[in-house]
Amino acid sequence: MVRYLGKKLLSAAVTLFAVSVLVFVSFALIPGDPAVRKLGTQATPQALEQMRESMGLTAPLPVRYVRWAAQFIQGDPGISYSYDMPVRTLLGDKFFVTMSLVLMSFLLLVAISIPLGIAHAKREGHLFDRLFLVLGQITMSIPPFFMGILVTLLFGIVLKLFVPGGYVSWKTDPAGFLLYLFFPALSIALPRVAMTVKLLRAEVLKEAEKDYVRTAYSRGNSTMMVLYRHVLKNAFIPVLTFLSMNLTDMVAGSVIIEQVFGIPGYGRFLLVSILGRDYPVVEAIIMGLAAFVILVNLLTDLLYRLLDPRVGEAG
């Protein structure tokens, strides 16, 4: 297990390094001079040269990479070109907001889909099963932004459970902040809940046909015992992969929902920064996303290993 962990950590580190090189080099090679952007096209060559010098743009690429990476590791991704402020100050809050939204969506996804999937499989062929198959199909086919609009309409305007567009900052009212996030999180989670339920149901039913289930019955297990002690752990293995893919996907997918619900996450900021060629900000966001994806994959691998002893045996 320790060796496995070491191997996975190493591979995560290598991946992160590769991403960082790719990000840094691409932004360094993109045409467009940040010094010109900062001083305007009317600036004198001397002033531009001086600015480049002070921004550290004159050094060779590898040196610049090392400087950049060292700063990054210390938690300082540089100064925003557009705002003349540390990127960290600009992004810190926004990252927190987006991550809160994503994690809440994910928790909702897990909390709803797993019990529902199990209940579903238990009642295969019954009315409940058929009804939810249809309902799931409908939910699955609604795109998240439209789900956001529907949720706003139902919970915000009809039921008045929250004020649409009335975002509450976590600094002023943490509880209000979480309550407000609940509805966008639900909009992100619902279509994915339908997919996860469908997958879990199918996996449970597939496992139930296997030989070891017959063995379990032969020892006097009841149907519930067979399900909870034998089938579920096996059925979860593919579901785990699916959930982890969803988690990484949600980080990107939250951008649209943030627009619909007026949430000040990094999504909108990313768009503005790309258009304004504010490379330090863009780099920081990309690296943040990459680190998140790599972390999720790492955790998935470890969980996988815990669920399935056959993983990672030979290499």
């Binding site: 296997k210 030989d211 070891y212 017959r214 063995t215 379990a216 032969s218 034998h230 752990k233 096996n234 293995i237 669920l307 399935d308 002893p309 056959r310």
Partner: peptide
């Protein structure tokens, strides 16, 4: 009962 396939008749996890 014991079965034919000793691999698939045991729970792999």
């Amino acid at each position: 009962v014991i079965f034919q396939e000793p691999m698939s008749s045991l729970n792999p996890v």
